[in-house]
Amino acid sequence: MADPDERSRGVALARAARRGDTLAMSDLLDHLTPHVGRICGRICGPAAAAGRQDAVQETLTAVFRGLRSLRDVDALYGWVRVLAVREAVRVARRDGRDTPAELAALPSPGDAQLAADIRDVLSRLTPEHRAVLLLRDVEGLDERAAAGLLGIPEGTVKSRLHRARTVFRRMWTA
């Protein structure tokens, strides 16, 4: 989704959708679904396929309901990301804290066993810890951006990330 052409296309579709073009809405849905699916998949985990679909559906429903009132359409992707993280954490919390996390979308280290081990450890974290680790350490967001996405203060991101890393390290070395 970092490709500027793709982003321009998404923003153009969103503008057309706001004007009432429902075919543009259908195209926008095609365009955003993989992006939202990746975010929700990482937080909900692969074992929770129905949960992930719930999170994706809730996110996109919120996107389409709010699209007309979105003040700055150029901010589409940041706004969609906020909604996706929020819905995924909510659904993961609802469905229990022991669902495995999805690492398939991450860059492969070329070591399947390592990926499996990381996946295993992540699967035992709470959704809140998993979300903050993925946003900060995998997606590379800064504290401010992660705080905005998760709807918590920056200080909480910092302390939660510290705890998540501590728990991860403890499980990793156990």
Partner: peptide, 9 residues
């Protein structure tokens, strides 16, 4: 589910 999303918008 997709149709429900469209209808929501």
């Amino acid at each position: 589910r997709r149709l429900h999303v469209m209808a929501a918008g």
